[in-house]
Amino acid sequence: MAQKSSFEKALNRLDEIVSQLESGDLSLDESLKIFQEGIELSRFCTKKLSEAESKVKKLTKTSSGKFKLEDLKIEEKEE
């Protein structure tokens, strides 16, 4: 279990790229390539974080033992 999400993978990769660039061992071409990748990852992560509102679903099991997700409305408490 504990599979890493695409977000987590992307963030880890971004971290790795920054370390690689920091080491300064790369040729200009290589660094360009991963710089570009880094910018894309950064954009991907930012986009992921800004994705739509929390979806709340309800898990139900049908009589045949299959699972179904239904939309769920929870009455929000007044704050």
Binding site: L49, S54, K55, V56, K57, L59, L69, I74
Partner: peptide, 16 residues
């Protein structure tokens, strides 16, 4: 739900 909403709106919540 309120706190998950506030901290990380992109998560999906499934209630059983």
């Amino acid at each position: 739900i309120r706190i998950l909403h506030r901290r990380m709106p992109s998560v999906e919540i499934i209630l059983n």
